[in-house]
Amino acid sequence: MFEQVILASECDVANEVICAPADVKELFELPTVFHIGQLAVSRTMILIFLAAFIVVALLYFGLRKGSVIPSKFQAVIESLVQFVRKDVAEDIIGPEGVRYAPYLTAMFLFLLVGNLFEITPLINFPITARMAIPAFLAIVTYVIFVFVGFHKNGFRYLTDIIWPKAVPLALRWLVGIIELFSTFILRPLTLAVRLFANLVAGHLMLTLLLGSGVIFIWNFAEAGAKSLVGVAWFAFGLGIFLFEIVVAVLQAYIFTLLSAVYIQSSVHPEH
C-alpha cells in the first residue's frame, strides 16, 4: 500500500514504461508508524505482531469449544494443526516427532499468515520478505538439529558426516567435505534464503505490476495511449497475484517440511 504511494509520487508516466522507485529499498523498508520512547516502531514490526495475533486468534477461536461434532471453522483449524502434527512432524521424524510438533506447528502457521500478508488487501506486505523471521527460524531449526544430532549420537554425529561409511573409500573424503559444508553451512542459509527470496520476488512483482497498472490507468490523461500498458501490467499482476497465493502456502510448507527433514536426519542419522 505504502509502496504504491511511493511509486505514484515518483513515477513519470509520460517517459517510463513501468514505475519503479529510485531505490528498491523503499519497497521493503517500511516507514515508522509511531515511537515508543526512543524505539521507532515500523509498519513491518506491527505486521509481525499482527501475524502472531492472527495465529493465536485463529487457534483460540477454532479450538476453544472443542466440540465433539466440530463446526466448519473448528474442523479447518483442527485439520491445519493435525496436518503439521501428523503429516509433517510424525510422518517425517517418526514417533519422536511429537516433541518437535509444537515448534513446527507454530512455525507453519506463523509463516503461513506472514506469507499470506503478501496478498492480503490493505496489508500487501509479507513479513517474510524481510530477513529477520526467515533467519531467526532457520537459526532455531539449525540449533535444534545440531543439538539433537550431538545429543542423540554424541561425537559420532560429526564423524559420520565427515567420514560416511556407506560411501566408497576413494570418494569418502570428498563426500565428507561436501556433507559437512552442506549440513552446517548450506542448510540454514538455503532454508532462510529460499523463503526470503521467494517472498521478496513475489512482493516486488506484485508491487511493480499492480502499482504501475493502477498509476498508468489512473493518469491516462498524461500517459495517453500508454495507459493500455497499464492495463497489461495490471492483468499480468492479477495472474501473479493468484500464483503468489500458491507460493505463500507452498513456501510456508517447504520451510516447515525441510526443518522436519533436518531434525529427522539428526534423530536417525543413518538414513
Partner: peptide, 23 residues
C-alpha cells in the same frame, strides 16, 4: 536488504515466542 533488521528480529522473536508458547 538481505540481512535481518535488528528491531524486526527482536519483534519476530517475541511474536514467534508468543505463537510457540500458545501452540
Amino acid at each position: 536488504l538481505v540481512l535481518p533488521d535488528p528491531y524486526e528480529l527482536v519483534a519476530g522473536i517475541i511474536a514467534f515466542a508468543i505463537v510457540f508458547f500458545f501452540v
